[in-house]
C-alpha cells in the first residue's frame, strides 16, 4: 500500500469503520459467555466474537465494502490502533510497579519457557511425518521477526521456510482465538497460579497477549491489575529478547533435538 495515501484511504473507507463500530457494540452488548466444560471454563470474550465477525465480513460475498483493499488497510490500522491498549497496560504496570519489581526474577526467567515450544511440539511434528519443516514450525512461536530469521537463514522456499510460514499463518488466523480460550481454560483448572499464567501471556504478539490476559482478568477479576501488569511486562521482555533467544538458543536447540529425535520418531512417510 502507498503509505503516503493512508490518511485518504482511512477516510474514504468510512463504511468499514461504521460497520466495525456496530460490530463492536453488538459484541460488547453480548459480553462474555462462559461455557463450563469438565476440564475448566471456556471464556468466549467479546473480542473473540469481534475477530470472527471481522473475518466473516471479509469472506461474505455480499459485503462489497469489506474486501482485499480493506483487509490491507486494516493491517496498517491495527499496528497504530493497538497503541492505546498498550498504553492501558503500561499505566496498569505503573500502578503495580513495586509488585512488578518484586516479581522481576520470575518475569525474566520465564522468558526461557518460550523454548517449551520445541520440547512439546517437535516430537509431535516428527510423529506426524514432518521432516525439516518441523524445525521451522517449532523452533519458536513464529511471529514476524522469527519468519525473517528463517527466511534469511534457509530461504522461504526451503522446508524450514514452509514450516515457519505454516505456524505463522495458523498463528495469525487462529492463534489469538486459540490462546484466549486456552488461557481461560488452564486458569480455571487452578493448577497454576494466575500470576504465573499472566507472565506466560507475553509471547511477542500484541493481540495474543490481549486475548490471553483479558481471559485471565475476566476469570480472576480480583487480581486483574496484577495480571495485566505481569502480562504486559512479559510481552515487552519478549519483544526485546525474543529474536536473541531464538538465534542463540531456540534454533540451535531445535536443530540438535531434531538430529537426536528424527531417527527415532521420523519413521513416517515424508509429506
Amino acid at each position: 500500500m502507498d503509505k503516503d495515501k493512508l490518511f485518504d484511504k482511512v477516510m474514504a473507507n468510512w463504511p468499514l469503520h461504521i460497520t466495525l463500530f456496530v460490530v463492536v457494540m453488538i459484541c460488547e452488548a453480548i459480553n462474555t459467555i462462559v461455557i463450563k466444560t469438565p476440564v475448566g471454563n471456556m471464556l468466549l470474550l467479546p473480542m473473540l466474537f469481534a475477530m470472527l465477525i471481522g473475518l466473516l465480513l471479509y469472506l461474505a460475498k455480499g459485503v462489497t465494502w469489506i474486501g482485499d483493499e480493506q483487509s490491507h488497510l486494516a493491517s496498517n490500522f491495527v499496528i497504530i490502533a493497538i497503541a492505546p491498549f498498550l498504553a492501558k497496560v503500561a499505566v496498569t504496570t505503573g500502578t503495580q510497579l513495586p509488585q512488578v519489581i518484586a516479581a522481576g526474577p520470575a518475569l525474566i526467567l520465564q522468558e526461557f519457557g518460550n523454548l517449551g515450544t520445541i520440547i512439546v511440539a517437535l516430537p509431535f511434528a516428527l510423529l506426524l511425518g514432518f521432516k525439516r519443516e518441523a524445525v521451522g514450525m517449532t523452533h519458536s512461536i513464529a511471529r514476524e521477526p522469527n519468519v525473517g530469521l528463517i527466511a534469511s537463514k534457509y530461504g522461504l522456499d526451503s522446508p524450514e521456510g514452509r514450516g515457519v510460514m505454516t505456524t505463522y499463518i495458523v498463528g495469525t488466523l487462529l492463534g489469538t482465538i486459540f490462546i484466549g480460550l486456552f488461557a481461560g481454560l488452564v486458569g480455571s483448572t487452578g493448577i497454576l497460579h494466575p500470576y504465573a499464567l499472566a507472565m506466560a501471556c507475553g509471547v511477542g504478539s500484541g493481540s495474543m497477549m490481549a486475548a490471553s490476559s483479558a481471559a485471565l482478568t475476566t476469570a480472576f477479576p480480583d487480581m486483574a491489575e496484577q495480571i495485566t501488569a505481569f502480562a504486559g511486562t512479559s510481552n515487552v521482555l519478549s519483544n526485546a529478547d525474543g529474536i536473541v533467544m531464538t538465534v542463540f538458543i531456540g534454533l540451535p536447540m531445535c536443530n540438535w533435538l531434531y538430529n537426536k529425535l528424527e531417527p527415532v520418531l521420523g519413521k513416517g512417510k515424508h509429506i
Binding site: L16, L20, V23, V24, C27, E28, P46, M47, L48, A50, M51, L52, I53, G54, L55, L56, L57, Y58, L59, I66, D68, Q70, S71, H72, A74, S75, F77, V78, A81, I82, F85, T172, L173, T176, G206, S207, A210, A211, A214
Partner: peptide, 13 residues
C-alpha cells in the same frame, strides 16, 4: 482490545 481484534479479523482475511 475489542476494536483492535475486529480490524484484525478483517486484516487476516
Amino acid at each position: 482490545a475489542t476494536p483492535i481484534l475486529a480490524y484484525a479479523g478483517v486484516s487476516i482475511g
